[in-house]
């Protein structure tokens, strides 16, 4: 097991370096240097050249990439010129709030989606299943911000139960936790979107398992439907969902992006958005890399969990 994890980690590192190279190349192509943020778009040609030389942006791309990698190893993500702060400091500040938002939404959605999917599979083609499928499908086909807007309209503007956006008083992770009313809408929006994806997946996973012969044997043993469900179906159907959750870690990050912008919630997504509109080179690359690292870690975690939970999986 330990050997397997080490081997997987090594592969993960290689993938991350590959991602870094691709991201770096892409970013370089889109915005070769952060000089315009610093000197403004009206800077003279000469001034730009001088600045680029001073900050190393005139070197060959490969050298720039290697020096970036070198910094990366020392957890130095470069300087965010727009924010006049090191990127790592900015990330440290915002990561907690984003994690809180994503984490709560993820847990909430799993609590709803897993039982929902199984119940839908067991009662398939019932009116309840149809209704849930319809809602799921619609949510699944909806841009995340649009769902947010509808909820703002309904719950904030029309009913006035919750504030339409997160107020400026929420500045730290702690204050985010202590102001549940402020965060209700963003969390619910994110959670609903996940419920749609998870329960749809869970339903089909459970349907696949229900068609298996061992379910029939369990019934032939005299187990009640509930017993069949709890003792045999739940675990096997959940196995495939583990993978899904692992894979959805990065999409939570991307989901955050829109939700944070919409509700003006100061997390990593909003930071990226501000970096993006200002072409803040180092913020963009760092956020992209973070997404990739989370993806790789999510995969890894899912694989390890599966390996631990499913006796059929042999680590190789």
């Amino acid at each position: 097991m330990i050997g397997y994890i080490i081997r997987r980690l090594l592969t993960a590192v290689i993938v991350v370096i590959g991602v870094a190279a691709i991201t770096f190349a892409m970013l370089h192509y889109v915005a070769p240097s952060p000089v315009y943020i610093v000197l403004g778009t009206k800077a003279t040609h000469r001034a730009i050249e001088v600045w680029n030389r001073q900050h190393g942006y005139d070197r060959p791309e490969i050298i720039q990439f290697l020096s970036y990698l070198n910094n990366l190893i020392h957890l130095n993500f470069g300087y965010a010129y727009k924010f006049s702060q090191p990127v790592s400091a900015l990330f440290r500040e915002n990561a907690g709030r984003s994690a809180y938002l994503s984490g709560t939404a993820l847990v909430l959605s799993l609590i709803i989606a897993l039982p929902l999917g199984i119940v839908q599979a067991v009662k398939r083609n019932s009116p309840g299943d149809y209704a849930a499928t319809a809602v799921n499908f619609t949510l699944y086909s909806m841009p995340s911000f649009f769902l947010g807007l509808i909820l703002i309209q309904l719950l904030a503007l029309d009913l006035g139960w919750f504030p339409p956006g997160v107020s400026d008083t929420v500045t730290s992770t702690l204050s985010a936790i202590t102001h549940p009313r402020q965060l209700f809408l963003p969390i619910i929006t994110l959670a609903l979107l996940n419920v749609a994806a998870f329960s749809r997946y869970m339903r089909s996973a459970a349907l696949d398992e229900l068609a298996q012969d061992y379910i029939r044997l369990a019934r032939a043993k005299g187990l009640s439907e509930r017993g069949v469900l709890m003792r045999h179906l739940l675990r096997n159907a959940s196995l495939s969902t583990i993978t899904l959750v692992g894979l959805s870690v990065p999409s939570l990050l991307a989901g955050n992006l829109l939700i944070e912008i919409l509700f003006n919630y100061p997390g990593l997504g909003l930071l990226f958005y501000n970096g993006l509109t200002n072409l803040d080179y180092n913020v963009m690359i760092a956020y992209t890399l973070l997404g990739a690292i989370l993806t790789v870690l999510g995969n890894l975690l899912a694989d390890i969990t599966i390996a631990a939970a499913d006796p059929r999986v042999r680590l190789g």
Binding site: Q212, D213, Y214, R216, L217, A218, A220, H232, R235, N236, L239, A309, D310, P311, R312
Partner: peptide, 14 residues
């Protein structure tokens, strides 16, 4: 009690 044909799929894998 009943015995089925396919023992691989009839036993719970986990």
């Amino acid at each position: 009690a009943m015995i089925f044909q396919d023992s691989l799929s009839s036993l719970n894998p986990t």
